[in-house]
Lab assay of single mutants.
Amino acid sequence: MQIFVKTLTGKTITSEVEPSDTIENVKAKIQDKEGIPPDQQRLIFAGKQLEDGRTLSDYNIQKESTLHLVLR
């Protein structure tokens, strides 16, 4: 499924993921596309910071959901 990751600069990254993918996994995909190390990434969805060990389905993230990427 496709999800969108919006950066603070307003850029939107499209990523191909599975509901069973972990947040860590998603951060790795963002690193592949943007070159941002996962340890600098914080992903936010519905006002919550997403934890690395959890999966997209844990957070009820569905296709075409938009996550927000904040850098630390």
Rank of each mutant, 00 (worst) to 15 (best):
M1P: 03
M1F: 15
Q2H: 11
Q2C: 09
I3E: 02
I3V: 06
I3M: 02
I3T: 00
F4M: 05
F4G: 02
F4N: 05
F4Y: 12
F4C: 04
F4E: 03
F4Q: 05
V5Q: 00
V5K: 00
K6Q: 10
T7E: 03
T7R: 08
T7Y: 14
T7A: 05
T7D: 07
L8Q: 14
L8P: 15
L8Y: 13
T9K: 11
T9L: 10
G10V: 01
K11L: 09
K11I: 09
K11F: 10
T12S: 06
T12W: 10
T12E: 04
T12M: 12
I13R: 00
I13D: 02
T14I: 14
T14Q: 08
T14Y: 09
T14M: 12
S15N: 08
S15Q: 15
V17G: 03
V17F: 12
V17S: 03
V17I: 05
V17R: 00
E18M: 14
E18H: 14
P19D: 06
P19S: 09
S20A: 08
S20M: 10
D21N: 07
D21W: 13
D21F: 08
T22M: 06
T22E: 02
T22A: 04
T22P: 05
I23W: 01
I23K: 00
I23V: 10
I23F: 02
I23Q: 01
I23H: 01
E24P: 01
N25D: 12
N25T: 14
N25Y: 11
N25L: 11
V26C: 01
V26H: 00
V26G: 00
K27N: 02
K27D: 01
K27G: 01
A28V: 11
A28N: 11
A28D: 06
A28G: 10
K29G: 07
K29R: 09
I30D: 01
Q31K: 09
Q31F: 15
Q31A: 14
D32M: 13
D32V: 12
D32A: 14
D32Y: 11
D32C: 08
D32N: 11
K33T: 12
E34R: 05
E34N: 09
E34A: 14
G35I: 02
G35Y: 04
G35K: 07
I36T: 07
P37T: 07
P37K: 07
P37Q: 07
P37M: 08
P37E: 08
P38V: 15
P38E: 09
P38R: 14
P38M: 15
D39W: 14
Q40W: 10
Q40T: 09
Q40I: 12
Q40L: 12
Q41A: 07
Q41K: 03
Q41W: 11
R42F: 14
R42L: 15
R42T: 15
L43C: 01
L43S: 00
I44F: 15
I44L: 12
I44D: 04
I44Y: 15
I44Q: 06
I44A: 05
F45H: 06
F45G: 01
F45D: 01
F45A: 02
A46R: 14
A46C: 09
A46N: 15
A46V: 06
A46G: 12
G47P: 00
G47E: 05
G47R: 04
K48N: 09
K48F: 11
K48A: 09
K48L: 12
K48P: 01
K48M: 13
Q49E: 15
Q49A: 10
Q49V: 15
L50C: 02
L50V: 04
E51C: 08
E51F: 07
E51Y: 06
E51M: 11
E51L: 09
E51P: 02
D52P: 06
G53M: 08
G53K: 11
G53Y: 11
R54V: 06
R54P: 04
T55K: 10
T55E: 03
T55V: 06
L56Y: 01
L56R: 00
S57Q: 13
S57D: 09
S57N: 10
S57A: 13
D58T: 04
D58Q: 07
D58C: 03
Y59R: 01
Y59H: 03
Y59Q: 04
N60H: 09
N60M: 08
I61G: 01
I61M: 03
I61Y: 00
Q62H: 10
K63S: 15
K63C: 07
K63Y: 07
K63H: 15
E64P: 05
E64Q: 10
S65L: 04
S65W: 04
S65T: 07
S65Y: 08
T66F: 07
T66H: 13
T66I: 13
L67V: 08
L67E: 00
L67R: 00
H68E: 10
H68D: 07
H68M: 13
H68K: 07
H68S: 08
H68N: 08
L69C: 03
L69R: 00
L69W: 00
L69Q: 02
L69F: 03
L69D: 00
V70Y: 12
V70E: 11
V70F: 13
V70Q: 09
V70A: 08
V70S: 07
L71Y: 10
L71R: 08
R72Y: 12
R72G: 09
R72T: 12
R72L: 14
R72D: 10
